[in-house]
C-alpha cells in the first residue's frame, strides 16, 4: 500500500464495517439486507468525491439505520446513546487496527501488538519493580534506586524486590491463561494503573536523586525558603548606602541574593543594593525626598539582619563602585563614606 486508499478499498472497508455491525442477524437475512449495498456505495462514491463516511455516516450508524428501517431490531436494541457509543467504539477499534498494522510495518512485523507481545516478560519484571517501589518506596523518600526495607538494609531490599519480580512473572504467566472477559479487562486495568505509576516512579526517582545531589552540594549559608533576593544597606543616619560589598568574619565575600531577580540585571552583581530601585520595597518611591532617610525605624528594614548569627557580616561600604578586593574584618562606620 502506498499510503492512499483506493476508492474500492474504501468501499470494501465501509461494507465490512456495516456487515460487522449486523453480525448478530442470521446470515441469510444479513446477506439479503446487504445485497444492494456494494452497488449503492459504488454509485455514491462515483457521485461524491468526499469520503463515504462524510456522506453516509459511520458504518455502524448506517447499519443501525438500515436495521431500524427494515424492521429488524437487534438483540441489543441500541438506543440513540448506545448507538453513538458503538459508533465511537467501532471508530476507536478501526483506528487501533490501522495504527497496529502501520506501526508493525515500520519495525518489520505484521502487527505492532505482535511485537509488543514478545516484550511481555520484560514488562512483568518491570511491573514487579514498580510494585516494589509503590508499596515500599513511595511511602518514604526514595534514597536509592532500590527501596530499602527494614531499617534501610540493602539485603532485605533486594530480597523484597526479587520477591516482587518473581511474583509478577508468576502472575503474568498465570494470567495469560485467563479466558473470562472480566478477568482480562481487570488485568488490563491493573497493567494500565501500574504503567502510569511507572512514569510517576521514574519522575519521583529523578527528582529525589537531584534533590540528594543538591543537598550534597548546597552552599554553607542556608536560608531554606526565606532566602533574600537583595540586600539593602542603610547607614546609622538612616540614609541608604549604595555600592556596598559584604564579607564574613573570615574575609570571604558574602554573595547574598539573586542578581536575576532584579527587574533589570545589575551592572556588577553582589554590589548592594543590586536592584536599581530597591527602595520601592519599603513602599516609599525613590523620588520622594524622604526616601533618602527612612527614619529611626529603618534599621528594622535592614536585610542583613536575616543572616544567621554564626556568620555576622561586616558591612564594608565603598565610596565608589570600584572593587574593594581587600576584606576589612573590622566593621566600619559607613556614614562618612557614603556616596550619592
Amino acid at each position: 500500500m502506498n499510503g492512499t486508499e483506493t476508492r474500492s478499498d474504501e468501499i470494501a472497508r465501509y461494507l465490512a464495517g456495516v456487515e460487522a455491525a449486523l453480525l448478530d442477524l442470521p446470515a441469510d437475512v444479513r446477506d439479503e439486507l446487504l445485497e444492494d449495498l456494494p452497488d449503492h456505495l459504488a454509485e455514491v462514491a462515483s457521485e461524491d468525491s468526499g469520503p463515504l463516511q462524510a456522506r453516509l455516516g459511520s458504518p455502524a450508524s448506517y447499519a443501525a439505520e438500515l436495521r431500524a428501517a427494515a424492521g429488524l431490531m437487534s438483540a441489543k436494541t441500541p438506543g440513540t446513546g448506545a448507538a453513538r457509543l458503538t459508533d465511537w467504539l467501532s471508530l476507536a477499534t478501526d483506528l487501533y487496527r490501522r495504527a497496529d498494522a502501520r506501526g508493525g510495518r515500520l519495525i518489520g512485523y505484521p502487527r505492532l501488538s505482535e511485537y509488543l507481545r514478545l516484550l511481555r516478560p520484560g514488562w512483568w519484571v518491570l511491573r514487579g519493580y514498580v510494585l516494589d517501589v509503590v508499596v515500599f518506596g513511595l511511602s518514604n523518600r526514595m534514597t536509592s534506586v532500590i527501596p530499602l526495607v527494614g531499617g534501610g538494609k540493602w539485603l532485605t531490599g533486594m530480597v523484597v524486590l526479587l520477591g516482587c519480580v518473581v511474583g509478577s512473572v508468576w502472575f503474568g504467566r498465570r494470567a495469560g491463561r485467563w479466558r473470562e472477559s472480566w478477568q482480562r479487562y481487570g488485568l488490563r486495568a491493573l497493567n494500565l494503573v501500574l504503567g502510569v505509576l511507572l512514569i510517576v516512579v521514574a519522575f519521583q526517582l529523578s527528582d529525589d536523586i537531584r534533590d540528594g545531589w543538591q543537598a550534597a552540594n548546597a552552599s554553607p549559608v542556608s536560608y531554606q525558603d526565606n532566602e533574600p533576593s537583595d540586600v539593602i544597606p542603610v547607614g546609622s543616619d538612616g540614609r541608604p548606602l549604595s555600592g556596598v560589598r559584604l564579607f564574613d568574619q573570615n574575609g570571604n565575600a558574602l554573595n547574598l541574593g539573586d542578581p536575576y531577580s532584579c527587574p533589570s540585571a545589575p551592572a556588577t552583581p553582589y554590589l548592594y543594593p543590586m536592584c536599581a530601585d530597591p527602595y520601592a520595597a519599603f513602599g516609599v518611591p525613590s523620588w520622594w525626598p524622604g526616601a533618602a532617610s527612612l527614619g529611626p525605624s529603618s534599621s528594622a528594614g535592614v536585610q542583613p539582619s536575616t543572616v544567621p548569627s554564626t556568620a555576622v557580616p561586616s558591612i564594608t561600604p565603598t565610596p565608589s563602585a570600584g572593587v574593594s578586593a581587600t576584606p576589612r574584618p573590622s566593621s566600619a562606620t559607613p556614614t562618612a563614606s557614603v556616596s550619592g
Binding site: E32, L33, D36, L37, H40, V44, L56, G57, Y62, A63, E65, L66, R67, A68, A69, A70, G71
Partner: peptide, 10 residues
C-alpha cells in the same frame, strides 16, 4: 437517509 430507504424497501 440512504440506509432508511434501503431498509424500507427490504
Amino acid at each position: 437517509g440512504d440506509a432508511s430507504v434501503y431498509g424500507t424497501l427490504r
